[in-house]
Every structure is written in structure tokens, then in C-alpha cells.
């Protein structure tokens, strides 16, 4: 397998095994101890990633990531996903609304020796907060 194919397979596991199946053992397996999430570089490491998982998957029942596209070159992999779920618990100060959300995320990761060392994520938090009614829709 080429590096790109191997790296895509690793990145795919983030969505299919961690986010869609809740298998948090995979976090320790494929995230580097010094993993950094941009643009919030103070957030790092597998422990923080699991906390983020609990924040999101805990607030949205049926949390699901559908992979729409993947592009890889060298040590970087891009994934475009559609994230869906139902808002059944408090999230970022917004009380449960029961609303169904659907947002796009585009993320790029850098993989070194089979571990994810860096991630640049661009989740569409603006649309998410609009769909929850926390920001007015225009």
C-alpha cells in the first residue's frame, strides 16, 4: 500500500470507529501523544480528543459522520464529512432543543509513523449554532 492509501485508512478509522461506533480505544491507537488540534493549539493529546468526543456525542443522540470525500498527498489527508445528530443534551450552554442538525466539516490531518500528529479542522459551527437557534438565521 502507498503512504497515501495507508494514511487514508487511518483517517477513515477516526470517523467509522471512533465517532460512529464510539470505540475510544482507537483514539489511543492512532492519535500521537502530542497531537495538536488547530486553531486551538492549547487543545492537544488523546485525552482531550476523548473529552471532545464526550461533549459532542453526549449532546447529540444518533451522532453520525458520513465521509463524502478524501484526498491525500504525502503525509496529509483531507476528509469532507456530513455530521448529523439530534440535540438531546446541553451543548456549549445551549439547552436541549430536540432539533436535528446537519453540518459539513472539512479537516486536514498530518500523519507520522501511523499516528495522527496534527489536525486542522473547519467544522461549520456557525451553521450548527444557527440550527440550534443560538444565533439568528439571516
Amino acid at each position: 500500500m502507498s503512504t497515501e492509501k495507508e494514511n487514508k485508512a487511518i483517517h477513515r478509522r477516526v470517523y467509522e470507529e471512533i465517532w460512529n461506533k464510539g470505540n475510544l480505544d482507537v483514539v489511543d491507537e492512532i492519535f500521537d501523544d502530542n497531537y495538536i488540534f488547530h486553531p486551538l493549539p492549547q487543545r492537544r493529546g488523546p485525552k482531550w480528543y476523548k473529552e471532545m468526543y464526550h461533549d459532542l456525542a453526549g449532546a447529540f443522540t444518533d451522532f453520525h459522520c458520513e465521509i463524502e470525500d478524501m484526498i491525500a498527498e504525502g503525509d496529509r489527508v483531507m476528509v469532507r464529512t456530513t455530521i448529523t445528530g439530534t440535540h438531546t443534551r446541553e451543548f456549549w450552554g445551549v439547552d436541549p432543543t430536540g432539533k436535528q442538525i446537519s453540518v459539513t466539516e472539512i479537516a486536514v490531518v498530518r500523519i507520522k509513523d501511523g499516528k495522527i500528529v496534527e489536525e486542522w479542522g473547519s467544522p461549520d459551527l456557525f451553521s450548527l449554532m444557527q440550527q440550534l437557534g443560538a444565533i439568528p438565521s439571516r
Binding site: 486553531p39 472539512i106 473547519s122 461549520d124 459551527l125 456557525f126
Partner: peptide, 17 residues
Amino acid sequence: FWFASDMLGMMQQLGAI
């Protein structure tokens, strides 16, 4: 063309939210 910019961050920096 697909794009995802940090619109939430932009609106916060403009003081709109």
C-alpha cells in the same frame, strides 16, 4: 468549489455575536 471558513470566529471578531 467546497469551502469551510470559520464564520463563527469571523462574526465574533466583528462583534456581531
